[in-house]
């Protein structure tokens, strides 16, 4: 699914669009940065409640094209700026991590 469609289906508040046409087929959820670094498949969407600059650093490291901030977490300006520079989509959703994972799973995106 294209990132722009994914954001639309999740009713996400998009702070930085990244590459809206890029396809995402997998997702990972977690708030421990090194756990994500050690386990996530490159190219996955990442659902987290961590909303700070280092999230972008991890996304760059693992070629994560879209970061979904769950439970209404907002992206601070420095995170948005870095995501724009690195062409990463960052978006907030009101649903929890669990709810977002379920929605993604229903859309055919799995871990």
């Amino acid at each position: 699914m294209k990132i722009k469609d994914l954001c639309e289906k999740l009713n996400a508040d998009v702070h930085a669009t990244g590459d809206p046409e890029r396809d995402v087929t997998k997702a990972a959820a977690g708030d421990l940065l090194s756990f994500i670094i050690g386990t996530v498949s490159e190219g996955s969407a990442w659902i987290t409640i961590q909303a700070h600059l280092n999230v972008a650093a991890v996304a760059v490291l693992k070629d994560i094209p879209v970061i979904i901030l769950a439970s209404g977490r907002k992206a601070p300006p420095d995170l948005i700026e870095r995501c724009r520079t690195e062409n990463i989509c960052v978006a907030s959703v009101s649903e929890s991590i669990f709810g977002t994972c379920k929605r993604l799973s229903d859309l055919g995106i799995n871990g």
Partner: peptide, 15 residues
């Protein structure tokens, strides 16, 4: 609280 300290830093380096 910032998500560091997963206890996977050194194992990730070694891997």
């Amino acid at each position: 609280e910032m998500g560091f300290g997963a206890g996977m830093g050194l194992p990730n380096i070694k891997r």
